[in-house]
Design a protein around this nucleic acid. Structure first.
Lengths: 133, 133
DNA sequence: CCTTGACCCTGTAGTTGCTACAGGGTGCAT
DNA sequence: ATGCACCCTGTAGCAACTACAGGGTCAAGG
């Protein structure tokens, strides 16, 4: 097992992650602390690259850090049935559906308000009126 | 102009706002500081009730506090043309549309991943696989 | 050999929009 | 007088980063 020995900036470049974010992930225990060089630089190996890629991909799909943590734990135990993984993903999907529905309802309401604006003075503005008690 | 003299709890009840949130709005300068009673309780008038209702309604429609601040400023100057109001609302609408589109794209991707899960072990889980590098 | 510049380090504070205490004071009814 | 609901200030916490400040390290060029 050879150490690929990436510096933090290089790891960031390869995963599309800001350096501060990587250090943040380490601080909250999502990414394990790597070895250090003599100059006290973090030296990352392949396993860090893989783990961080997994994290980023999950985050891009909208999973929370807690969900990512759970997915990482699950993915480490290759023999276990994957129902728990499915459950997390399903839950997330449901939440996305709910968010979409909420935004669409909001959009409808806001759109109907905006469409009534005929650009006169504020005194006769339908938008302000719609917001006023 | 009579002071309606609502206590903070009553104002909260009438506007659906938590007491801490009202104090927070005062702290950030969104709601002006009301007079105090001899016992140092906040005593709100009708103008506060109206202003806070406006704020809540705007927040419910998803405007940011900065946008609400701008809308409040604009609504105070009744003679001014309402183009600026329209611009804020349009901008917000555009942002909502973008969010909906983003969520729908995400939903499609996540759904296609989840639908491939046939509930075996983690080792053969398509979800984990899709997340892995 | 020295300096420049890009990179790295720690630690802390800021972002948004609240929410949740802790530790006290007030006001009213019983 | 004592209980209870309410109010006060001040501070810290949430998510998930981001942005410094104030330093150290390292390789290349002059």
């Amino acid at each position: 097992m050879k150490d690929t020995n990436l510096a933090i900036g290089e790891l960031g470049r390869r995963t599309g992650t800001k350096v501060e974010t990587i250090r943040y992930y380490e601080r909250i225990g999502l990414l394990s602390a790597p070895q250090r060089t003599t100059g006290n630089y973090r030296a990352y190996g392949l396993e860090h690259l893989n783990r961080l890629s997994f994290i980023r991909r999950s985050r891009d799909l909208g999973f929370s850090l807690d969900q990512v943590r759970a997915l990482l734990d699950l993915s480490d135990d290759r023999q276990r049935p994957c129902e728990a993984v499915d459950a997390i993903a399903q839950e997330h999907l449901t939440e996305i559906d709910r968010k979409i529905a909420d935004l669409q309802a909001l959009r409808r309401e806001l759109h109907s308000i905006v469409s009534q604006c005929h650009v006169g003075t504020v005194a006769e503005c339908r938008i302000i009126e719609a917001l006023s008690p």
